[in-house]
């Protein structure tokens, strides 16, 4: 089948990929664009390690045909990372050791970003509920939940212009 060119916004940049039908966003990001922060854990929508944001909504990029994001805004962990230093979520994950092998971290971070976009002051129940689709085999989730709590406080304080 013929390939088509799909254009979308990735981290503020216009990108184009030439893809066969049913190529996933995950594959376009990793195999064509070299954006490997988006992980590949199951390609079945079962682990969440490929989570990216499409127009600020968390999506499993392994199940999403890249044609579906034509003209849309895609955010991956690469574009969350500031030029200098770390995003508050990244800093909180680092401080809380909210990872061991690190393979689930990009998906967890994107999911947390989506949560905080919608709910800047989540309680513990909101956070655990939000994380249920993503698997971590190492940490037991506790450090991840704590990191998101800390990041939420830091981001909230930052928005109100208060010192962290």
């Amino acid at each position: 089948m013929a390939s088509t060119i799909v254009a979308f916004e990735l981290g503020g940049r216009e990108v184009e990929v030439m893809v066969k039908p049913m190529t996933t966003l995950q594959s376009a990001l990793r195999d064509q664009l070299g954006f490997t922060a988006t992980k590949e854990g199951c390609r079945q929508g079962g682990c969440g390690s490929c989570t990216v944001l499409v127009n600020d909504e968390p999506m499993l990029s392994c199940l999403l045909p890249v044609e579906d994001v034509a003209g849309q805004r895609v955010t991956t962990l690469e574009s969350l990372t500031p030029t200098q230093g770390l995003h508050p979520l990244q800093q909180a994950f680092l401080d809380a050791n909210a990872f061991q092998c690190g393979y689930c971290t990009p998906g967890m971070t994107m999911l947390a970003q989506a949560l905080l976009d919608h709910n800047p002051a989540p309680d513990r129940g909101d956070i655990t509920q939000a994380l249920t689709g993503n698997i971590c085999r190492c940490t037991g989730y506790g450090p991840i939940v704590r990191a998101i709590e800390v990041a939420a406080q830091a981001m909230h304080a930052g928005e109100e212009g208060q010192p962290r």
Partner: peptide, 21 residues
């Protein structure tokens, strides 16, 4: 002390075998 590979993990720059091509 903080993990020496921590920044790589939180920024997604850590390179796993699956990330190579």
């Amino acid at each position: 002390v903080g993990r020496s590979d921590g920044i790589g993990h939180v920024t997604g720059r850590t390179r796993y075998t699956a990330d190579r091509s």
